[in-house]
Structure formats: C-alpha cells, structure tokens
Amino acid sequence: MTKKTLLSTMLLATLTLAPIVSFAAVTNTTIAPKTNADAKTAAQQKTIDSLKTRATTEIDRRVTALTALVTKISAMKRLTTTQKASFAAEVQSNITALNALKTKIVADTDLATLKTDVKSIVDSYRIYLLFMPKIHILSAVDVGSQIITKFSDVITKLQTRITAITTEKTTLQAKLDDMKAKITDATTQFSQASRAVIALDPTGYPGNKTQLQAAHQLIVAANADLKTARQDAKDIMAALK
C-alpha cells in the first residue's frame, strides 16, 4: 500500500465514523428523558423564584416609601409631638414587620406557604395602604397652613398699600377681597381634610378608604384656591409697582 492510498483510507474512515461518534454522544446526553414529576418540580421552582422576586421588590418599595414617610412626619410643623411619635412608631413597626416578612419569603420552599406570605404583603400590611395617603394628606395640610400664614402677612401688607392709593383702588380692593375669600376657603378645606384623616386607623381599612379619597379632594380644592390667591397677589403687585 502506498503512502497515498493509506492517507486516503484514513480520511475516508474519519469522514464515515465522525457522524456515528457524534450521534453516540448526543444519544448519551438524551439517554435519560425527564419525567413528568421532574418537569412539575422545575415549573414549580420557576414559580417560586418568580414570586420571591416579585415579593421582595414589592417589600423593598414599601420599606423605601415608609422610611421616607418617617422623615416627612418628623418635618411636620403642625402636628403635636405626641402625634408625630405615634405615627412614626406605627410606620417604623410596619417597616420592621415588612423586613421580617421579606426574610421569611426568601427562605420559603413550599409554594403554598410562599403564596400565603406574598398575599399577606397586602392583606396584613394595611398600615402601608392607609398611612401613605394619610401622611401625605396631613403633610399637605401642614404645608398648606404655613402658606396660609404667609398669605395673611401678604394680605395685611397689600391692604395697607391699597388703602394708600387713589387710582385703581376699587379694582385692586376687589382682587384683594377675592384673595381673602380664597384663603378662607382653603383654611376650611385643609381643616376638614385634617379632621377626616387624623383618626383613621389601619384596622378600619379598607372601610375608611372613602374618607381618604374625600380628604384628598379637599386638599386638591384648597391647593387650587391657594393658586388663585397667588395669582390675585401677583396682579395686585403688578398694578402697585
């Protein structure tokens, strides 16, 4: 056999056997097909992982929001020290409970238990659902009251100026009277909003949801009144300069 013939034979053998070897390798890897039970377990694990990811994201979002709420409560000027301490303690307690729940959820291995724990983020933690709007409404009332105090100063100063002028007096006095009326309305609305939510308790949720919504509408209306009063002040100042 010549060298050339030998080389040709080896090449032919390689080309012929290669697919067989390759097939054998593939056959080996698929030799143990998954059972239905394995597939079910894999799907369940996927559900568990997905639920855990969703739950931890939701808990983190709540904890971040509640932490910001504690800062907001401490910055409020119109709440009493006792009210601040009470609200802050309730919110802090909720943060602690949510963090504990997160630890439990991460450790859950049973899908049914995990589902119950995930559901409890909403069901058992009504404080979040109640306190988020409640504290923002109270904060709006707090800031609104500060704005009203400032407006009272502005009204006194503008009244002095209008009393001293001779031209456009009637027009500007009408603007100032409108401004006063808007401030009075806003004061009433902020007061009603505060009274509506200050005593709302998480145990009353979701029954007290309508009161939260009504209080929200009051601060929206009060805010609109303050904007009109601000425009009146701007118009008066433009005429006086």
């Binding site: 923002h136 800031v143 704005i147 601000r230 002040a233």
Partner: peptide
Amino acid sequence: TNDLNAIDSLNTSLNNDVQSS
C-alpha cells in the same frame, strides 16, 4: 415679594404632597 417667594417655595412642597397622596 419675599413673602410670595416663600409661598411659591412652600407651594412646590404642597404640590408634591398632593401628587404623592
């Protein structure tokens, strides 16, 4: 003007609270 500027600043905060609510 100073009072009105202070009002504008507080109003930004009020708007944020209304939005957050």
